[in-house]
Every structure is written in C-alpha cells, then in structure tokens.
Simulated assay, not measured.
Amino acid sequence: MTHDSRAVPSAAAWRRSSYSNTQGGDCVEVADGFPGVLPVRDSKRPHGSALVFGAPAWSAFVNEVKADRSA
C-alpha cells in the first residue's frame, strides 16, 4: 500500500461506494482500471492523497466487511 497520490492520474474515474450516504458523510471512492491495484480516497478530500492497495488485499478487506455484515 502506498500513500502517494501521484501514482493515481488526475484523470482517474472515481466511483463512490454504494454504501455511502447521500448527505456527504463518510464516503469512500475507488478508481478502477489500474491492473493489480485499487486506489482508494476520501470523497471529502478529492485533491488529497489516495491509498493504493494491491488487488488481493482489497478483495480480502471487502470479503471481511461483507462477512461481518451478514453475521
């Protein structure tokens, strides 16, 4: 994982989590189209840095969140 937003082009197409609220609260955005990695940022800070996760690490995180929701 890296905290370097320069690794994510400014023209990246960001999408907001479907679980984010519509009032501008705690929102996570991800950018697709980067082989092997997934950039993640806080939607309230679009010009701030992004975290870049390896695809396996991000998949493991999402699976754990889904498992916790169903428990």
Rank of each mutant, 00 (worst) to 15 (best):
P39R: 05
S5F: 08
V30R: 02
P39F: 06
R45V: 10
P56H: 09
G24Y: 01
N21K: 00
S59E: 14
F61Y: 14
T22R: 03
N21L: 03
A11Q: 13
T2W: 10
V62M: 11
A50G: 07
R69A: 15
F61H: 08
Y19E: 07
H47C: 10
R16S: 04
V52F: 02
E64V: 09
S5M: 10
F34D: 04
Q23H: 06
S70V: 15
L51W: 08
S70E: 15
P56D: 12
S17G: 09
A71Y: 13
A57S: 14
E64P: 01
W14K: 00
R15K: 06
H3E: 04
A50P: 05
R15E: 02
W58H: 07
P46Y: 12
Y19W: 08
R41Y: 06
A7Q: 14
A12S: 12
R45T: 10
R45Y: 11
P35M: 09
A12R: 00
P39A: 09
T2S: 15
V52W: 01
Q23E: 04
A7R: 14
A57C: 08
V52Y: 01
S20F: 02
A60Q: 11
S18H: 02
D42M: 12
N63A: 15
P9M: 05
F53M: 12
V65S: 08
F53R: 03
Y19N: 04
T22Q: 03
H3F: 13
N63F: 05
R16D: 00
M1K: 10
P35Y: 08
Q23N: 09
L38A: 12
S10K: 11
V40L: 12
F34M: 07
A31D: 07
N21F: 01
F61C: 10
V28L: 06
S17K: 00
S70N: 15
S5D: 06
R15C: 03
P39N: 09
D68Q: 13
D42H: 10
P46A: 10
E64F: 12
F53W: 10
P46N: 06
V40K: 04
V37I: 15
S17W: 06
V62I: 15
S20T: 01
G36F: 07
V52E: 00
R69E: 14
D32A: 12
V8H: 07
S43T: 09
V8C: 05
W58L: 08
E29V: 02
H3I: 00
R15Y: 01
D26F: 05
R16I: 04
P9Q: 08
T22V: 03
W14M: 03
R69V: 12
P56K: 07
D32F: 00
H3T: 13
P56Y: 07
S20K: 01
C27F: 02
F61M: 06
S49P: 09
S70T: 15
A7D: 13
W58N: 05
G33Y: 07
V62T: 13
W14Y: 00
G48N: 10
D4E: 12
N21S: 06
D32W: 04
G36R: 06
V8L: 00
A13V: 06
Q23G: 08
S18F: 02
V62S: 04
A31K: 03
G36P: 05
V30W: 02
A7S: 13
A11F: 10
L38M: 13
V40M: 08
V52G: 02
A55L: 10
